[in-house]
């Protein structure tokens, strides 16, 4: 059964003349892992801040769990926004105890979540004595404390060492497999690629692409082709409708197709025009290249 967790309608946010977010809409469905991907300053934190109630939207609205923006919904959400924010003079344990009190959890599993992120040895150490990586882990622990249905993670691997990054990604995947809904904001393509099922790509506050990782990828590979008579080949390419664009590169032609079309279809279309290709090679792009292309 598909269920809408979060519906966002035409959100905009202006900081003076800066349009941090414009006309952002999306629908988050239960059980999927979403990636909000975009370079720094593209509006990821702004978007998440608005739906978490800490940033006032300039326009638009959102609703959680098919209902309202009511605060009691937040107890079903675990969220980490931008930086780990804790009381520096309190211990890890006491900081989580404050979070548990806010979420009104009767028997918080503080030790359990500290154990989960590997901080059990430091549970009585003050937050201010922590390294950035430890702070980040504590923040992740605090998002898990109410065993929430939805997890919002804004750049969760920021400041972690490679081992920590791998740990956190494993953790997110594991949580996603438990059927939880995850919204992950990141500027790192491979992070989103490794962890998410769906992706929304943001650039300067505007949505550029969205859909399943598979959809966003499909049809965007480039195909290298060549024929004995390169000139007549490039002439007939202009009349083939499935081609988005092409350009001559040395003695070959590099073609990109419209979404959903395949190299086989291209080959067939060219053959029907009476030209036999001497070379056809599909260059699978990595998501990274795709991403850089999309945000150009």
């Amino acid at each position: 059964m598909e269920q809408t967790i979060l519906q966002i309608n035409s959100l905009s946010k202006n900081y003076g003349s800066v349009k941090a977010l414009s006309d952002f809409s999306c629908k988050i469905e239960a059980g999927k892992t979403y990636g909000i991907l975009g370079p720094n300053g593209s509006g990821k934190t702004t978007t998440l801040g608005i739906v978490l109630g800490v940033i006032n939207a300039s326009e638009g609205n959102y609703s959680w769990f098919g209902g309202s923006t009511l605060n009691k919904n937040k107890h079903r959400i675990g969220a980490l926004l931008e930086t780990p924010n804790f009381y520096p003079y309190l211990s890890a344990y006491k900081n989580l105890d404050v979070v548990a009190a806010i979420k009104q959890i009767t028997n918080p599993k503080i030790d359990e979540v500290l154990d989960f992120v590997g901080l059990e040895k430091w549970k009585n150490a003050a937050f201010k004595s922590f390294s950035l990586g430890m702070k980040q882990r504590l923040a992740i622990a605090s998002t898990l404390i109410a065993d929430p249905e939805v997890l919002i993670l804004d750049e969760p691997t920021n400041g972690l060492d490679p081992e920590g990054i791998a740990d956190v990604r494993k953790l997110i995947t594991a949580i996603g497999q438990k059927g939880k809904t995850i919204i992950l904001a990141s500027h790192l393509i491979d992070e989103v690629e490794k962890v998410c099922t769906d992706v929304i790509i943001l650039k300067s506050g505007k949505t550029i692409e969205s859909g399943s990782i598979y959809e966003v990828l499909k049809g965007d590979d480039t195909i290298e082709i060549a024929a004995d008579d390169l000139n007549s080949l490039s002439n007939i390419l202009k009349s083939i409708s499935i081609i988005k664009s092409f350009k001559k590169v040395n003695d070959k032609i590099s073609v990109s197709l419209n979404k959903g079309n395949t190299a086989a279809e291209l080959n067939k279309a060219i053959f029907e025009k009476g030209i036999v290709l001497s070379h056809l090679f599909v260059k699978k792009k990595k998501l990274e290249e795709q991403f850089l292309e999309l945000i150009k």
């Binding site: 978490l52 937040k74 926004l81 924010n85 979070v99 979420k103």
Partner: peptide, 21 residues
């Protein structure tokens, strides 16, 4: 002012308190 310096006012709202609370 601590709540602003530590950004814990932000975190308290994220964690579930309303601004009224």
């Amino acid at each position: 002012c601590n709540e602003y310096t530590f950004k814990t006012i932000r975190q308290n709202v994220i964690d579930g308190l309303s601004k009224f609370e």
